[in-house]
Design a protein around this nucleic acid. Structure first.
Length: 453
RNA sequence: GGUAACGUGGCGGAAUGGUUACGCAGAGGAUUGCAAAUCCUUGUAUCCCGGUUCGAUUCCGGGCGUUACCUCCA
């Protein structure tokens, strides 16, 4: 499609036309998971949002012209704590959770990014960058710690709209005696014997939280790239700090031209948080819902809005997919989505607007030609829906049934006998009984068919 | 306290300086033994108060309310 892509840029707070640095090499970096616990639906949102952005970019610039990097943070204090709590090794914990994360991505039908670098595999790069920052007087060492000197970077606070003096004037920031100023943040800290550590000019230790993204994005995407994404909460301090580190280390070159942040998921209108006890893990849904149901649910709200997660949302999504599967037809050859229908996705990833268009394409397909069904299916496929055959969709539903197929068929037989005898009361009883078990029967012409509700 | 975002029908959720998409639910009808499915038809909404305007839900100001970030967090 010839249309331009527009994106809401957190840097500046406006929707802007997306102009890549090099249309033959569009580059996007998204902050990935810290592998200390099973991913939850809050993690699922950016996975799906940026998966769609990845698809949209590829659609516009060509499949091989888009690079997408998403890091895996496998060294962090939360990981150390998590391993202690579970009484397993750090290595086992990070491997297990990384595997879980991969499974969750598959479940949600997210494409693999071009790169998925791990922090622990790039420690030397971080050490190099910290060295550069120290040389340039943007960082200082004190007692085996290295801190970034925030006052050395005059644009600090520009992304998150914060005034450094005001921000840190109060007593809310943890004050460490090692730091010169409260706003300074750690680039490197020492590790004890039993903590993971790497040798460095400042002794055995490990990197601070922010430096990995600066080091790895530089390695895989270069000093300046097009899009940097993540959850809203990362805007400050994480992304602010990334900018400070990267620009100071890279001759003040911008880190990313566009900053995209997705909104939060709430549960019963309250923030989902461990302290609230309302965290839904992605794997908790494996049994009950096909991953597409979650995917559609996550797309039903614009990515910047807060969205409330509840049963009704999933029920509706499931129902919609059930309906849509009726018109699934695998496209033969190349089928194009009409520009007007695709347009909302180009306009700041307006997924609800796009879904609305899919509904219209469905209406057409439901009564129209095979070609219309192919267009409809292609439109669904584009956002990662209806990609698996209908048989699989039905199979999933069958697997969660509590009644066997033989029993169902027997009941239907019984009911039809009752109907033949005009014993409609018994017939209706049997139907209701099946309905209670999630089986819907339909009398069509002379045949009775059944399906899972 | 500082910085932001948001407030659209019963629910979810877009868009817009002038008939307010779309889905779910609801209502009526066709169909049916009754249903289901399908098809047709259909009602209902822009937090409040000012301002700009021929006209605002949309722009501006104020208020009220909700939420987030400012501390680990997607």
């Amino acid at each position: 499609m010839n249309k331009d892509i527009y994106l809401s840029n957190s840097l500046g707070g406006k929707k802007e036309k997306f102009i890549p640095i090099n249309p033959k090499k569009v580059r996007m970096y998204v902050c990935g998971p810290t592998v200390y616990d099973d991913p939850h639906i809050g993690n699922a949102r950016p996975l799906v949002v940026f998966d769609i952005l990845f698809k949209v970019l590829k659609c516009k610039y060509g499949k091989s012209s888009v690079l997408y990097a998403r890091n895996i943070t496998d060294v962090d204090d939360k990981i150390i704590d998590g391993a202690k709590k579970k009484n397993i090794s750090i290595d086992k914990l990070t491997k297990d959770i990384t595997k879980r994360f991969d499974d969750d991505c598959d479940y949600l039908n997210c494409e693999k990014p071009s790169f998925e670098p791990k922090a622990t595999e790039n420690i030397p790069l971080m050490i190099d960058m910290i060295n550069v920052l120290i040389k340039k007087n943007n960082a200082y060492e004190n007692k085996s710690h290295v801190y970034f000197n925030v006052s050395s970077f005059k644009d600090y606070g520009k992304l998150s709209n914060k005034n450094v003096d005001e921000l840190f004037a109060g007593a809310r920031v943890e004050v460490s005696e090692n730091k010169k100023r409260p706003e300074d943040f750690v680039l490197w800290k020492p590790s004890t014997e039993d903590e993971p550590g790497w040798d460095s000019p400042w002794g055995r230790g490990r990197p601070g939280w922010h430096i990995e993204c600066s080091a790895m994005s530089k390695k895989f995407l270069g000093d300046t790239f097009d899009i940097h994404g993540g959850g809203r909460d990362l805007l400050f301090p994480h992304h602010e700090n990334e900018i400070a580190q990267s620009r100071c280390a890279n001759e003040n070159k911008p880190l990313s031209n566009y900053w995209i942040h997705n909104g939060f998921i709430t549960v019963s209108n309250e923030k989902m948080a461990k302290s609230q006890g309302n965290v839904f893990k992605i794997k908790d849904f494996y049994e009950k819902y096909n991953g597409q149901v979650l995917r559609l649910a996550l797309m039903s709200t614009h990515y910047r809005q807060a969205m409330d997660w509840n049963e009704n949302l999933l029920t509706q999504s499931k129902k919609t997919l059930d309906k849509w599967y009726e018109c699934q037809k695998k496209p033969e050859g190349k089928v194009l989505i009409p520009d007007d229908d695709l347009a909302p996705l180009y306009d700041d990833l307006n997924t609800p607007g796009y879904i609305s268009n899919i509904h219209k394409l469905y209406d057409k397909a439901a009564k129209g030609s095979e070609k219309d069904k192919e267009i409809f299916t292609t439109a669904c496929n584009f956002i990662g829906l209806l990609t698996e055959p209908k048989s699989k969709w039905l199979e999933f539903k069958k697997n969660i049934l509590e009644i066997s197929e033989e029993e169902i068929l027997q009941k239907i037989k019984d009911r039809n006998t009752a109907r033949d005898n005009k014993n409609y009361q018994l017939a209706d009883e049997i139907r209701n009984e099946l309905l209670d078990k999630g089986i819907l029967i339909e009398d069509k012409d002379d045949k009775t068919t059944w399906k899972i509700k």
